[in-house]
């Protein structure tokens, strides 16, 4: 499957999952969908993931609230029964709204409390270095998540340990829970921050698959890599784009119908 098709499928699946479960965070999923799609299309060997091969690519979603995107990606590449997606957020389901590894094949760790998945990812990358393995670890964080001091503790540590096998993607959509990142706790210039922390930094359009893939392919000789992925929260449904209402609201009635219509018009 091409990454563009996977990205569309993720959005289409998650629209129904969030609608049925009356769940939140659809805007975050639509923001990160292209990043997730490129990773699972071009950087994951499905068979390796399935048998938990020691050299499998590790993908960590540190912004765990976009977990639906990962479930949908796993279902679309055949690691989960697509029917399972319908249980998302339902009573008795194993698919919690914040991404869970418990009983879900293909997911490395559970996250949800921000700024913690990045540290675990650094530990996983460190283990690979120490054991002489060649796998890469990709961790996706939010720009709002970077308010957390633990992100910056990790940034110092990853550079100190020369974790060039670690790539952090910041899904930089400019919005966090209560509003604009710039108005709440302005992270200012991500590029110069990570550069000054000693990372290799690339700033890309987080919805351009070719550009994303090229950036994700890069491995520095010594430094960890940070990809600043400039994204639009709610990307793909016009009335959700850059509107933080859809950090919380679940699409029902006319909103749901309109979202379905818009996405169906984009069907690849």
């Amino acid at each position: 499957m091409e990454s563009k098709i996977l990205a569309w499928q993720i959005r289409r699946d998650v629209l129904d999952m969030v609608h049925s479960a009356h769940a939140s965070h659809i805007g975050s999923v639509f923001s990160v969908a292209d990043i997730v799609a490129v990773l699972y299309t071009d950087f994951v060997d499905k068979e390796q993931l399935l048998r938990r091969d020691k050299e499998r690519t590790r993908i960590i979603l540190s912004k765990g609230h976009a977990g639906a995107a990962i479930y949908a990606a796993l279902a679309e590449i055949g690691l989960m029964d697509k029917k399972e997606l319908q249980t998302y957020g339902m009573n008795g389901s194993k698919l919690s709204c914040h991404v869970s590894h418990n009983h879900v094949a293909g997911i490395e760790i559970s996250t949800g409390s921000l700024g913690q998945g990045v540290g675990m990812a650094a530990g996983i990358a460190l283990a690979g270095k120490k054991a002489g393995r060649h796998y890469r670890t990709f961790v996706i964080a939010g720009d709002g998540e970077c308010n957390e001091g633990s992100v910056w503790e990790m940034a110092l540590f990853a550079r100190q340990q020369k974790l060039n096998n670690l790539t952090m993607i910041v899904d930089c959509n400019g919005l966090q829970a209560m509003g604009k990142t710039a108005d709440i706790l302005d992270m200012r210039d991500f590029e110069s921050k990570f550069d000054s922390f000693g990372w290799h930094v690339q700033s890309v359009n987080g919805h351009d698959h070719a550009v994303l893939k090229a950036a994700l392919l890069y491995v520095d000789e010594t430094k960890p890599t940070c990809i600043i992925a400039n994204t639009v929260k709610g990307k793909g449904v016009s009335f959700m784009e850059n509107n933080n209402l859809w950090h919380y609201r679940d699409p029902q009635g006319e909103a749901y119908d309109n979202a379905v219509m818009e996405l169906e018009r984009q069907r690849p």
């Binding site: 913690q116 540290g119 675990m120 990812a121 990358a125 283990a127 001091g149 110092l156």
Partner: peptide, 22 residues
């Protein structure tokens, strides 16, 4: 490894390192 004065990171890194069989 002296991880520095950064206990949040120490605990998270330790967990990641341990999940890889250490």
């Amino acid at each position: 490894i002296n991880v520095g004065i950064a206990e949040q990171n120490m605990a998270a890194v330790a967990a990641g390192l341990a999940l890889e069989g250490n």
